[in-house]
């Protein structure tokens, strides 16, 4: 929020830090939780906190997506998946040291990668030099769409968005097909699987 004074920036950074800490606590809770319903609930909380962080960082549209997908749809989908599988996570057979190592190394590399990026909301960053000013200044006149995000998504990158919509639509159909219950065909499918195996 570049227009704000120094105190606003401090307030926002403090809030972001507190929220990120809470997200860390929620993530540890998720990792330690064996009851999958608890995991779904904590995951919803995580998404709400994440979306709030994104709003604090002024990424309103991403926050909207995070809230809709993370806290809304995926809670429902995960519950549907739990219904088909089971409510508790089984204990791992051996200690997950190797996955932990892989995850830690990947995370460290990602953090190292961010060191090379320009500072957050730096006006001289490359991303603010090329197309972004053009979209912002010429977008409304050229496309006739009052909202810049909508102009970019639906006009400049409309074919991209069309493809994305197809992907999401297909994924939705796939999920519904997988999670749908009380279909008369399901017992037969089980039989076939049994015969095959």
């Amino acid at each position: 929020m570049g227009t704000g004074s120094r105190s606003v920036i401090i307030l926002e950074e403090l809030t972001a830090v507190v929220l990120l800490t809470l997200m860390g606590a929620a993530a540890i809770g998720i990792a330690r939780q064996r009851n999958l319903f608890g995991v779904v609930m904590l995951g919803g909380i995580y998404s709400f906190l994440m979306a709030t962080v994104l709003v604090v960082l002024d990424a309103v549209d991403v926050a909207m997506t995070e809230a809709a997908v993370g806290a809304g749809i995926s809670t429902v989908l995960l519950l549907g998946a739990i219904h088909l599988t089971g409510g508790t996570e089984s204990k791992p057979i051996h200690r997950p040291w190797l996955p932990l190592f892989v995850v830690a190394v990947t995370g460290a590399m990602l953090v190292y990668g961010t060191l090379g990026l320009p500072a957050f909301s730096d006006p001289k960053a490359p991303i603010h030099q090329h197309v972004a000013p053009r979209y912002l200044t010429e977008g409304p006149e050229k496309t006739g769409v009052p909202n810049v995000v909508t102009a970019v998504l639906a006009s400049y990158r409309s074919f991209d968005t069309l493809g994305e919509t197809f992907v999401v639509f297909t994924a939705g159909i796939g999920v519904i097909a997988l999670l749908r219950r009380r279909t008369p065909r399901r017992p037969r499918e089980h039989d076939q699987e049994d015969r095959k195996s």
Partner: peptide, 28 residues
């Protein structure tokens, strides 16, 4: 119980909502 968690999640959702509304005002 899982209901306690759901209750807390719901309340956190309400608080996050309020926080969002306030932050829109902070950002002007």
């Amino acid at each position: 119980t899982v209901f306690d968690r759901a209750l807390a999640a719901n309340a956190i959702g309400t608080l996050a909502m309020l926080l969002l509304a306030i932050f829109q005002f902070v950002g002007g």
